[in-house]
Each structure stands twice: as structure tokens, then as C-alpha cells.
Design a protein around this nucleic acid. Sequence first.
DNA 1: CCCTGATTCGC
DNA 2: GCGAATCAGG
Length: 170
Amino acid sequence: MNWTDERVELLRKLWSEGLSASQIAAQLGSVTRNAVIGKVHRLKLSSRGRATASPARQKKTVSGSTATRSVTRTATVTRSVTTIGATALQAQFDAEPVARYHQRPVEDVVVPISRRLQLVQLSERTCKWPNGDPLTEEFSFCGNDCAETGPYCTYHSRIAFQPAAERRRR
DNA sequence: CCCTGATTCGC
DNA sequence: GCGAATCAGG
């Protein structure tokens, strides 16, 4: 797939909305997050608030060729970005009351704080327990670590896979 | 380890 | 121009 005007436009939109490169790549399809990042740079629309922006680089010595050039090019990199105070990322509406399952505490369960991941952020090791209504913006997945042995974290596994005996007692 | 963006450089 | 590989950081 190539970068059609349409795809570039979508890229611009999503990037400005604060989505991560991997999320954008997932929506565009047929491209990796690296491709997205590379394109973003070429379009000169990098710095978006301040994601992982870190001090300048200057590494990568893969090619062992004509080195020795004491470049020492430092300074003059304009590292200012006008301290955006509230411009930063998006809403980030918080205040999630965590799992509120009126369920009688199954022993000493530790209620996990959901990472509130979006569908595209799930991997094989993230808990896939859903939080909220799938039709609302707040919908998310637990996202805490889940051994590759199951789809949920330790806590949600106990809820999902309650022993038959215990379930009957309730 | 998972994920993020940043940079380099062969193609 | 493209994007995998690699880096640096959370």
C-alpha cells in the first residue's frame, strides 16, 4: 500500500488527535508503526505536545566506514517548544471507580487498577476483561498483565473462572 | 517485557 | 520517499 492523499490525510488527522503511531498504523492498515513515524517526520509534523520526545540523538554507527570526523555538532537545535501548558494530550478523563463488582470478595483478591486500554492496544499479554459499555467512549479493557496462559489478569480470572463448588455456594 | 517516539540509512 | 532496524526512554 502506498501513501495516497487519502491515507496521508487520515494520518494527519489521527496524529493531531493524539493517537500513537501504532494505533494509527492499526487503523490505516498495511503499514507498521515505523512507517507511520517515518511518514510523520517526512511530513514535518513531529512534535505533538511532548510524547517521548527526548534529547537529540547522534548514534547509529552501523556503517563502519569513513568515520573519524569529530563532528561534535551540538547546539543550535532549537529545543524549545513554547511550554504548552494545557495543550498537551487529550482529555484523559479519569476518575474510573475501578472494578466495582458487588461480588463478595473472593478471599484476598487484589482489585487491579485498569490500564483502560483500547482494543487496538491489546496484545497477547494484556487482560482482555472489558470495562464499561462498548458503545461509549469510556469503554476500555483491563489491560493488566495476563500470563500467556489465559485471557485475563489474575483478578479477572478469578471472577471469570470461579470454581464450581464456590459458585454453587454463592 | 510491554509500549512510545526519534533517528539513521540502505533501498 | 519509504520503512526496518535501532536507539532511548516510560
